[in-house]
Amino acid sequence: MSASYRGGEPVAQVVRSGFAESFHRGSVAVTDPAGSLAAAIGDAASPVFPRSSNKPMQALAMLRAGWEPRSEADLAIASASHRGEPFHIERVRSVLAAAGLTEDHLQCPPDLPGNLDARNAVVALEGPEPKRVYMNCSGKHAGMLAACAAAGWDTATYRDPEHPLQRLIVETVEDLTGETVDHIGVDGCGAPVLAVSLHGIARAFARFVEAPEGTSERRVADAMRAHPHLIDGTRGPDQRSMAAVPGLLAKGGAEGFHVVAAPGVGAVAVKIDDGGGRASMPVALRALTTIAGLDVPQAAKPEIDALTGPEILGGGQPVGRVRTLL
């Protein structure tokens, strides 16, 4: 059995009406631009599942397999945890069509859009029947299928950990993190999920933002930063942060995971122990600004401050905030 994550320390609290209502424990790894560990809170060395924060590395493996996206937007959607908005679905279908594939090839679970407006529109037009293309990982699955088509690999078994694409993803993750994948599990979308340390994935994101122009690593990072609305969706934390700060790269994952990085600054990976997502981005951004030393442009400060201390509502009105404890 693999080593176990040991848990972290208090990293955030929820303050409602001046009263500390809840606390979040977690772990944080901060690297310098070269990927060396600059600071750590809690357990930054034991393996964890980064969940969807692995997607940029999976997208890189798709390029290494020979996939040539028709556009950088198509590459961005392969790195995304989208919300099923119309522009998301258009991109997923674009990836499939360019590879000569259809939605029937997708093996992610059927779902309805995560964005409420998009969900209501779909239900009104099509009824409540979920579809695989609406699932938030359908972009990744479409990219995996397109990579298989480009490489001449079987598309029916692309989720199998022994499939050539999945073996290449393991090699790519190990290359970028500088670690041996500790454990392979099954992600919520049915594809393999790979366990590495917080330090390892922060090191990988530092490599993405420091990669020279023209490399595949830089291509993935640039596609995400050029199309932040595709990465999570309208007013999502990744979209908001990347749109606000030039060069910032951000990718969240399920179970309280978040990674942020900036060129010349370094990277931060965060795991919230209780699996809740409300504290992961605040802690990640706070660590990037106060520990790694990101200088936020003046015009971006209101947005970054709002993401670092999101409001808590009472009766529909702000009555408190999530407050980081770094």
Results as ranks from 00 to 15, higher is better:
G7V: 08
G8A: 07
V15P: 03
A20Q: 13
V30I: 13
T31W: 09
P33E: 12
D43C: 08
V48N: 02
V48T: 13
S52E: 10
N54R: 08
P56E: 09
M57R: 06
Q58T: 05
M62F: 11
W67N: 06
A73N: 06
D74F: 09
I77F: 11
I77M: 11
R83P: 00
G84D: 01
E85A: 05
I89F: 00
R91T: 11
V95P: 05
L101D: 02
D104R: 15
H105L: 12
L106T: 00
C108A: 06
P109W: 08
P110R: 04
P110S: 09
L112R: 00
N120I: 02
P128E: 14
K131Y: 00
M135C: 02
K140A: 02
A149K: 10
T157C: 06
P161K: 09
P161T: 08
P164L: 09
L168A: 07
V170S: 01
T172R: 05
E179Q: 10
G185T: 08
C189T: 02
V196G: 01
V196R: 06
H199S: 11
F205D: 01
A206T: 02
V209K: 12
S216T: 04
R219C: 10
A221F: 01
A221S: 11
D222Q: 14
H227R: 03
K251H: 12
V260A: 05
V260G: 01
A261F: 04
G264M: 10
G275N: 12
G276E: 14
A287T: 02
T289D: 04
A292T: 10
K301L: 14
I304H: 02
D305P: 05
E311Q: 15
I312W: 06
G315N: 08
R323V: 15
